[in-house]
């Protein structure tokens, strides 16, 4: 029985092709790994907010530089897709540009900066101001996947708490924060409750972006490469920031500030300190949206919710101020 079948005589490489599926381009991520990621993402979508472990592969970027997001994006992206990559809301940042180039070079996807035209948006620390639509996928890079890590360190205990929805310690932690500091000091990566079941970190997006995750038309995938787990928020899922009835959720807002470029006061603004004691200036962190606002190509009223929350907080603060004075 020594007749060698043609497949048996194939070289290692060609047999590898038969095992791992077609790979038209020299890959940075093989088909079997992509399949594992897709399965994990489907599990995540089926159980919103649940952390699904996966065997994170080593990527051509350092862990902490979006290796988890990169694996998710590479598993999702198709040749006809338009890909947008942002870091801190910017398309042009060095890291965002490098990631975008890496992905488009190794897939057939096209580079895109316009949020409206992108099929997949990989982002670090921001959700675009432009409301996402049905069919879009937002991939968020996650440095610390576990929202309970400040409260309990043992991974078994964290998993038990999630499994039993035992978040009492989380509530106590938030309550103690108010007792010590007068308010909840959680800044970026504010803990949220997903569909009334799992407490989740929304990745270190600012609180400004948290309401955008609620009832979104798009799919959100959150992937942590170093911690080897991902979780997801399917479309039209309730995402509620954890807070108390008498402590409304507050987003970042500095009264009187507006973008120095487009004049917006209803977007997430970041400060650029002035030199030699000059007052700082503010600008939009979402550069695509800022550019389109300037050309009149952006909606005049976006998302609504963050800025309403901000203004509500401001009105409340002013009222309290009036009451005390």
């Amino acid at each position: 029985m020594n007749t060698l079948s043609p497949t048996r005589t194939g070289t290692g490489a060609s047999r590898a092709g038969a095992l791992a599926g077609p790979d038209p381009r020299p890959g940075i991520f093989d088909e079997l790994s992509k399949r594992e990621l897709r399965r994990a993402m489907l599990s995540g979508i089926a159980i919103p907010g649940y952390q699904v472990p996966y065997g994170s592969r080593e990527m051509p970027v350092a862990r902490g530089w979006g290796s988890g997001g990169l694996q998710a994006t590479l598993s999702l992206v198709c040749d006809e897709d338009q890909l947008k990559v942002i870091d801190q809301g910017e398309d042009a940042g060095v890291n965002a540009s490098n990631l975008r180039r890496l992905i488009t070079e190794h897939t057939g996807a096209g580079e895109e900066t316009d949020t409206r035209a992108a099929d997949i948006i990989q982002s670090r620390h921001r959700i675009p101001e432009q409301p996402l639509t049905d069919g879009q996928i937002l991939v968020l890079q996650v440095p610390n996947a576990e929202p309970l890590f400040r409260i309990v360190q043992e991974m078994d205990e964290q998993r038990r708490m999630h499994a039993e929805a035992d978040y009492a310690k989380m509530w106590v932690w938030l309550y103690e924060d108010i007792v010590h500091n007068g308010l909840i000091t959680a800044a970026a990566g504010y803990p949220v409750l997903v569909e009334g079941r799992y407490v989740m970190t929304p990745s270190p997006i600012p609180r400004w972006d948290v309401p955008k995750m609620n009832d979104s038309d798009a799919i959100t995938i959150l992937s942590a490469g170093r911690e080897k787990r991902l979780f997801a928020v399917p479309p039209h899922t309730r995402v509620v920031p954890l807070t108390f009835d008498d402590r409304p959720f507050e987003v970042e807002y500095t009264p009187g500030t507006a973008c120095r470029l487009c004049g917006s006061d209803d977007t997430y603004l970041v400060e650029e300190p002035g030199e030699n004691g000059a007052p700082g200036t503010w600008s939009c962190s979402d550069t695509d949206f800022c550019t389109r606002r300037r050309t009149g190509d952006a909606p005049a009223d976006v998302a609504g919710q963050p800025v309403e929350l901000a203004r509500a907080a401001l009105r409340r603060a002013t009222r309290e101020q009036e009451e005390t004075s």
């Binding site: 902490g64 290796s67 870091d87 801190q88 620390h125 170093r226 970041v270």
Partner: peptide
């Protein structure tokens, strides 16, 4: 990787 990632911009979080 984690140590190196601190070099990436964090101004959105910092704000």
């Amino acid at each position: 990787g984690y140590a190196q990632h601190l070099k990436l911009p964090h101004h959105v979080e910092y704000r």
